[in-house]
Simulated assay, not measured.
Amino acid sequence: MGVYSGSFDPITLGHQNIIERASKMFDKLVVVIANNSEKKYWFDLKERKEMLEDLFKDYKNIQIDTYEGLIVNYLLENNLQIIVRGIRTVEDCGLELYFADGNLMISENKVDTVFLPAFKEYMHVSSTAAREIARYGGKVTCYVDQRIEKRLLERGKLYSPKKN
């Protein structure tokens, strides 16, 4: 069993691609929506969970869960051993290696990490970019699934710069 986590605010096409690919590697993949109380999200935890459940409802081996805290602790609490992480850039690689090493130390070598490189067409895709495009009512379907588009554009109106 593998675990893929993120804040998914919103879930992007890049996230979806990693989840779909990872779901083929494991009998069961748990997608954990992380919630950091220090972070300001566009979508609350319930909304983010609804989006992921809608996108993956036809995948029998994908389970959606939520967690507040260190993802390594989630794995330890649930007797799981593999974290799946996507890598888009060289910078991501360095940071993810740092986290993987930390997770190994914290877990006393019980939790390891598997890295999946992003497909070329998703290397530029991020939730931050999707939100910024939505703020201006732009074409977000290059970044998010069409089933997420309406929600994201509607939410973007709340964060749109005021017009003079």
Score class of each variant (00 low, 15 high):
residue 21 R to F: 01
residue 151 R to C: 07
residue 96 E to D: 01
residue 10 P to R: 05
residue 80 L to Q: 08
residue 124 H to G: 13
residue 56 F to E: 13
residue 21 R to H: 09
residue 52 L to G: 09
residue 11 I to D: 08
residue 96 E to T: 02
residue 106 I to A: 09
residue 113 T to Q: 01
residue 130 A to L: 05
residue 31 V to E: 13
residue 125 V to E: 09
residue 48 R to Q: 11
residue 21 R to T: 03
residue 52 L to K: 04
residue 80 L to C: 02
residue 113 T to C: 01
residue 59 Y to D: 12
residue 120 K to Y: 15
residue 94 G to I: 05
residue 107 S to C: 01
residue 83 I to C: 08
residue 8 F to Q: 06
residue 127 S to N: 08
residue 37 S to Q: 11
residue 100 A to G: 04
residue 161 P to A: 00
residue 153 L to T: 04
residue 128 T to G: 10
residue 105 M to K: 15
residue 143 Y to I: 00
residue 103 N to Y: 02
residue 104 L to D: 04
residue 25 M to T: 02
residue 87 I to K: 01
residue 118 A to Q: 04
residue 11 I to R: 10
residue 96 E to Q: 02
residue 127 S to W: 03
residue 30 V to G: 00
residue 99 F to I: 00
residue 140 V to W: 10
residue 25 M to L: 15
residue 69 G to Y: 04
residue 22 A to L: 03
residue 61 N to P: 08
residue 60 K to N: 12
residue 120 K to V: 09
residue 120 K to A: 05
residue 155 R to V: 07
residue 144 V to Q: 07
residue 135 R to Y: 12
residue 11 I to W: 06
residue 123 M to R: 13
residue 85 R to G: 03
residue 139 K to Q: 12
residue 127 S to Q: 06
residue 95 L to M: 08
residue 161 P to S: 06
residue 139 K to D: 15
residue 31 V to L: 03
residue 1 M to E: 12
residue 91 E to T: 14
residue 57 K to W: 11
residue 69 G to Q: 05
residue 97 L to M: 14
residue 123 M to S: 14
residue 164 N to P: 13
residue 1 M to S: 14
residue 16 Q to I: 12
residue 161 P to L: 08
residue 87 I to E: 02
residue 19 I to H: 06
residue 27 D to Y: 01
residue 75 L to T: 10
residue 31 V to G: 10
residue 71 I to T: 11
residue 134 A to F: 05
residue 73 N to T: 13
residue 112 D to G: 04
residue 51 M to G: 06
residue 164 N to F: 11
residue 22 A to T: 08
residue 20 E to Y: 08
residue 93 C to M: 15
residue 67 Y to A: 06
residue 41 Y to G: 08
residue 5 S to T: 14
residue 79 N to V: 00
residue 131 R to H: 05
residue 139 K to S: 01
residue 125 V to T: 14
residue 150 K to L: 04
residue 79 N to C: 05
residue 133 I to A: 05
residue 43 F to P: 09
residue 147 R to E: 14
residue 72 V to Y: 06
residue 123 M to W: 01
residue 123 M to C: 11
residue 128 T to V: 06
residue 9 D to V: 07
residue 161 P to D: 10
residue 127 S to E: 07
residue 7 S to I: 06
residue 85 R to Q: 03
residue 6 G to L: 04
residue 146 Q to M: 10
residue 11 I to N: 12
residue 91 E to N: 12
residue 143 Y to W: 13
residue 130 A to S: 09
residue 157 K to Y: 02
residue 100 A to N: 04
residue 138 G to R: 02
residue 57 K to Y: 12
residue 152 L to N: 09
residue 83 I to P: 02
residue 119 F to V: 09
residue 30 V to N: 14
residue 50 E to N: 13
residue 16 Q to K: 14
residue 4 Y to M: 05
residue 113 T to P: 04
residue 25 M to S: 07
residue 7 S to Q: 13
residue 133 I to P: 12
residue 64 I to Q: 10
residue 58 D to E: 15
residue 28 K to T: 14
residue 161 P to I: 04
residue 99 F to N: 06
residue 41 Y to T: 09
residue 96 E to K: 01
residue 87 I to C: 03
residue 56 F to Y: 15
residue 39 K to Y: 10
residue 71 I to W: 07
residue 59 Y to E: 15
residue 126 S to C: 02
residue 30 V to T: 15
residue 141 T to S: 09
residue 111 V to C: 07
residue 1 M to K: 12
residue 139 K to C: 00
